[in-house]
């Protein structure tokens, strides 16, 4: 059963490698070019990924959720915003992975402003991803892009709170499975 699952997971990869190896045999130029690209990406990926997973794992364990959430309510002020950005930057995953966390934060009394700042920071200031970005796009571009996005999503958070009202709450969806 386990073998079947592995075969299913790797089906397209096996097809890809058959294509590559076949291309090598018959000297099919596009296949060779594609492999050269693949090799470059793979090496870059394998150098960076373990680092990222160690990063994510450690902060998942070290950052106590309850404690952080207590500081990001309406009274939290600038400090609360700082905490919420810090919380977001040490996480990883796609944006929709942050929605359940946003619901939790909202339920525990985080202000709408901080919740949307959290989403902003989660989407474009994640530190594990930043190491990756620097790897591919260079230090200057990555740092500047991150730096510029900071005021942008803080302003978005402020506008959102103004637009939705201070009492706005994120709701738990009824028919969407919780992450």
């Amino acid at each position: 059963m386990k073998k079947k699952k592995i075969l299913k997971d790797y089906f397209w990869i096996i097809i890809f490698f058959i294509f590559i190896v076949g291309s090598m045999f018959i000297n099919y130029e596009p296949g060779r070019q594609i492999y050269i690209n693949f090799e470059k990406f793979f090496i870059e990926m394998i150098l960076f990924l373990p680092l990222m997973f160690v990063f994510v794992g450690l902060f998942d364990v070290w950052v106590p959720k309850e404690k952080v959430e207590r500081h990001v309510g309406h009274e939290g002020g600038i400090t609360g915003t700082f905490w919420i950005i810090l919380l977001a930057t040490f996480q990883a995953g796609p944006l929709y992975g942050a929605f359940p966390v946003a619901y939790l934060l909202s339920k525990k009394g985080a202000s709408p402003r901080n919740i949307f700042i959290y989403l902003g920071a989660f989407s474009c200031m994640k530190l594990p991803m930043l190491t990756f970005e620097i790897n591919f796009l260079g230090l200057k571009f990555s740092l500047l892009r991150t730096l510029f996005s900071l005021p942008v999503f803080i302003i978005i958070g402020i506008i959102m709170e103004y637009y939705l009202g201070k009492d706005y709450k994120v709701t738990q969806p009824e028919n969407v499975k919780m992450g």
Binding site: F99, F116, I156, I159, M160, L164
Partner: peptide, 22 residues
């Protein structure tokens, strides 16, 4: 659709619109 389920239409559209401008 996932975002609307959590945040409601109003908030989801506005957040995406503002992010687009941003």
């Amino acid at each position: 659709p996932i975002e609307i389920a959590y945040f409601g239409k109003k908030a989801a559209f506005m957040r995406n619109f503002l992010s687009f401008i941003g």
